[in-house]
Structure formats: C-alpha cells, structure tokens
Amino acid sequence: MDYVQAIVDGLLFGAVYALIGIGFTLIFGVMNKINMAYAAASFAGAYVSLGIAQVVGLSGDFGLPPFVMFLVSAVAGGVFAYIVYLICFRFTPDHYELASLMATIGTLLMVDEMVVQATNGEPQNYPEVLQGIFDNPMLEFSEEFAIRGDLLTLFIVAVIATLGLLWVLFRTKLGLATRAVAQQRMAAQLCGIRVDRTNATTFVIAGVLGGLAGAMIGAVVGTLLQSLVVIPLTIKGLIVTVIGGLGSIPGAIVGGLMVGAFENVFLAIRGVTERDMYVMLLLFVFLAFRPQGLFGRVAVRD
C-alpha cells in the first residue's frame, strides 16, 4: 500500500472537487442561498457533451477534437445553471427563505431523473480525452510512485480555470460588481449595479466551472454513471464548501484538495464501498469542532 501515491492522486483529482466547491461558494457568496441543483445541472452539461460526441464521433474526419468536449460541457453547464437561476431564484419569491432551497432540491431530483431517462440508468463511456497530452504515467519516480498524466492534465486545467475566475473577480468591472453584491447588496444597488443581472452572471460562471468539472470527471473515470455522479457529487461539493467555509473561494480550493486526498487514502485502506463514509466523518468532525470551516468567519451580529 502506497500512501504517497494515494495522497498525490487524490490531491490532483481533488481539483475537480475544488471547482465544484467554488461554484457552490460563489453562488452562496452573492445570494446568501444554497443552490442544491448546481452540481447536478452543470454535470448535465457533461452529458450533453457526451451525447454530441456519441453522435458525431471523436477526432477523425468531422469528429470532435477532445478540447471541444470540454468547451461544449462548460457552455452547456453555464446554460443549465442559468435555467436553474430563472426557475429557482428569479421567479421564486425571495421573501420565503425556504422557497428557493426547496425549488433547487426539486430541480436536483428532476435533473437526476432526466439523466436516468436519457441513459436508462446505465454507465456511459466517456472518451478519455485527458489522455495523450502527457505520457501516462508521466513521471515515474520509482516502482511504487508515478504521477498519472491524465490527472496532471486535469489538475492543470482546473488551475487555469480557477486563475481565470480570479482574474474576472479581481481585475474586471464584472468582478467588481460581483464582489460588491456579495459584500453589501444595498450599497451595490446604490452604486448602480443591477443585483439580478449580477446574480445571473454568477450562476453562469459557476455553471461553466461545474460543466468543466463534470467533463473532467467523465474523462478521468472513463464513464459517467448517474447513480455515482449526480447526487453523490452534489453532496461532496457541499461537504467541500462546508469544510472550506461557506462563501470562501480559498476555502473551497483547500477543502476540495483535502477531500480528494482524504477520500483516496481511505479508498486505498478500506475500499470504494466505505470511502464516502469517512468523508462524511470528516464533515462531522468539522461541524463539531470548526463549524465555520477552514476560512469561514464566525457568525457575528452586525
């Protein structure tokens, strides 16, 4: 049993958890509400990219180049996220605290069921489009330890996506508006920022990240199976967000990598059937001893 290998693999794969966590945290940041349908809706983007690939084929004449898979998944993820915004937030009265939450849970179950209908609940082979950029395994340090090329590619793509997000947030007018709405909604309105538009844009950005994450999970695992992806990854994304601290982007990044490494170690020790149990345990440890998460603030009255 090689723990170093398990931890490194887990950290690299954890980058997709970080992306999902960032999506949850962004939406919570600007709206102060949880969007339970977020991960499911953006993974639906990955299914769309898969569907297109199944129709036109991959590479070759008229085929889909691998990076287009990611593009399609990301765009579709953004579109689905916007639809969720319209259904669950824009046209759901916001003076009932629970209305949006219940609407998003309903949407989550509906998306789950739609994926079941579309796939007959069977696993769908996802083209391993992350292969081939690096040799696989790329860096063989010894008999026991090597870095997987596809995981390294995934990690790099996730880092680029995160840097892109931070650039938008801290270097553009759109980002300024997003941060303003997240920190002080009324003052943002007084500065002329349209809160509803900012909310919608945030959903789309989060959806793009989620679509990308969904496609990369499909590519690394080699299949998309609804019963292992839609609801379980929604829950894992929420766990990442809680561990990192709701509303904190650095928290989501660290939380994602941490959960990735943690679950992979327990996968190595206890096997796939028990893995998620220990992730839940980690969540309870945090809820009991550090409920505000790694980077969250202790709630204070203002």
């Binding site: 300024l176 941060r179 303003a180 920190q183 009324m186 003052a187 943002a188 920022i193």
Partner: peptide
C-alpha cells in the same frame, strides 16, 4: 447619489476598490 445610513461600505474590499465601485455607472 445616496450616502446610506450606517455607511454600508464594502467591508472586504480595499478603499480603492470601494471608490471604483462608486464610479460603476
């Protein structure tokens, strides 16, 4: 332009970005 009650500055933004937000329109 309205200067709101309780000031309502953007707490996690630096002073410079607060001013830039004021010029959003």
């Amino acid at each position: 332009a309205l200067v709101p009650e309780n000031r309502l500055v953007f707490p996690d933004m630096n002073v410079h970005d607060n001013l830039k937000t004021g010029a959003y329109v």
